[in-house]
Computed example of a mutant assay.
Amino acid sequence: MTSSSKDYEACNQLIENYLNNDAEPTLERFLNDNEKVIGKPDWDKLLLAAVKKFDTGPHPVPQQQKPPPSIASPSAPSKSSKKPITAAMVDKYFEPLVDDKKWTLSTGKVVEDTMKKYTVTCNFEHPIHSLILDIDDKMWVKDGYFTEQEMREIKDARCPKDPELPTHIAEYLKGYAGNKDLESIFDHANHRLFHPKRESDLFWIHQAFVKTLNLFYSNYLPITDHSETDILNRVWGIVQECFDVSHL
């Protein structure tokens, strides 16, 4: 008897025992209970073939379902949807940086060099490879790349201050205070209209309220299973309209 035949028989027996001893069998529970066994080479095909043989109908097996590898990292992607990264690619991103132009913190730590230390631990392309440092990612402090003090220094560096709202806009927005339901917000939004050219800022704010209300009235919001394209068109489209009469 070949090794493949023995594996197939063992797989059949394993599934048969499971089906006979579980009142409500599911493929997910079977995979979790037998993860160490089914993680062996070729068992994914044997498993699907055997499950199909014993399956009685209430718990169909997806044709492309595969057992998770027993030694895979929880964060490792199941498919190469991300671009694999190599040491040569890391050098390509960081080698051109000139030392005397790098950012040195008050503690003496060089930000770009510290970022590079993290890149060499990545198996797949990460925003850091484009020299993007997410200051809200707690990993930087948790994993010891920066201290809390250093992260505060990074966050505060060259941080632009938001300009004060013009008085007429601030007064208009204050008018919505206390309106906590759709009807009261709708009534306030429609008690006055604005000219799209002469009062372009107030016109856009007013339109943003009205169009957002419409998304709630039509049950488009809150967002659940909407596609990214839908959200870009329906939600972010409202924001984009603020640039219609802007100089930016």
Rank of each mutant, 00 (worst) to 15 (best):
P67S: 00
C122L: 08
P74Y: 03
A72H: 04
Q13V: 05
E16H: 08
D44Q: 09
T114M: 12
F94R: 11
V120H: 11
L48V: 04
I71E: 01
S130A: 09
I135K: 13
K53R: 11
R29F: 02
L48M: 08
S70P: 01
V98H: 08
L46E: 02
L46C: 02
H59S: 00
D136N: 15
N32T: 01
G144K: 11
F146H: 15
I85C: 13
T104M: 11
D143K: 10
A23S: 11
P96Q: 09
T119W: 07
L105P: 03
S75P: 00
K117L: 12
W140H: 15
C122H: 09
D55G: 05
K6N: 00
K116P: 10
P58T: 03
K142S: 12
Q64L: 03
D143F: 10
V90W: 14
Q13L: 06
Q63F: 12
E28S: 00
M89E: 15
E24F: 06
H126I: 10
K66H: 07
F146K: 15
L27A: 02
S70G: 01
S73Q: 03
D143S: 14
I15Y: 05
S5N: 11
Y8A: 05
D55H: 06
N12E: 04
V61C: 08
P60F: 00
S81H: 07
D100M: 04
Y145W: 10
S75M: 00
G144I: 12
K92S: 15
Q65T: 03
V110F: 03
D55C: 06
Y118M: 14
V61L: 01
A87K: 14
P60Q: 11
K101W: 06
K138D: 14
K102H: 06
L48G: 11
V51D: 00
V111I: 03
P69R: 10
K92R: 15
D136T: 15
G57K: 09
D136L: 15
